[in-house]
Simulated assay, not measured.
Amino acid sequence: MGKGDKKTKRGKINRGTFGVRRPRVKKKPSIETKISIDTKANPK
Rank of each mutant, 00 (worst) to 15 (best):
F18S: 08
K44Q: 05
R15K: 15
F18A: 06
K28V: 06
A41C: 00
K12Q: 15
G16Q: 04
D5H: 15
T17Y: 03
R24N: 06
G11M: 00
T8F: 07
K44L: 04
G2T: 12
R10H: 08
P29M: 09
D5G: 02
A41W: 04
A41H: 07
D38Y: 09
G2M: 03
K6D: 09
I31A: 07
G19E: 00
S30T: 11
N14L: 01
V25I: 15
G4D: 13
T17L: 11
P43Q: 02
A41D: 03
G16C: 12
I37S: 12
K12P: 01
T17M: 03
K44R: 07
K44A: 05
N42D: 08
R15H: 07
T33K: 15
T39N: 07
K28E: 11
T8Q: 02
K7Y: 13
G4F: 12
T8S: 15
G19H: 03
T39C: 06
P29C: 05
S30Y: 07
G2K: 06
K12L: 15
T33V: 15
I31F: 14
K44V: 02
T17K: 09
T17V: 15
K27H: 09
R21Q: 10
V20T: 14
R24E: 14
S36M: 07
A41P: 00
I37Q: 07
T33Q: 14
G11E: 00
G2V: 11
K9E: 04
K34S: 08
G19N: 07
K27S: 10
R15M: 11
K9Q: 01
K40C: 08
G2S: 12
K9V: 10
K26P: 11
R22L: 14
N42M: 10
K3V: 09
F18R: 08
T33G: 01
T8W: 01
I35Q: 06
D38S: 12
G4V: 13
K6L: 13
K3Y: 09
G11W: 01
P29R: 13
G16M: 02
P23N: 03
I13S: 06
T33H: 10
K6R: 12
K3G: 13
P43I: 01
K26D: 14
E32A: 14
G11D: 02
S36F: 02
K34H: 05
G19D: 09
V20K: 15
T17I: 15
I31W: 10
I31M: 13
R24A: 13
N42F: 04
G2C: 03
K3F: 10
K7R: 14
S36T: 09
G19A: 08
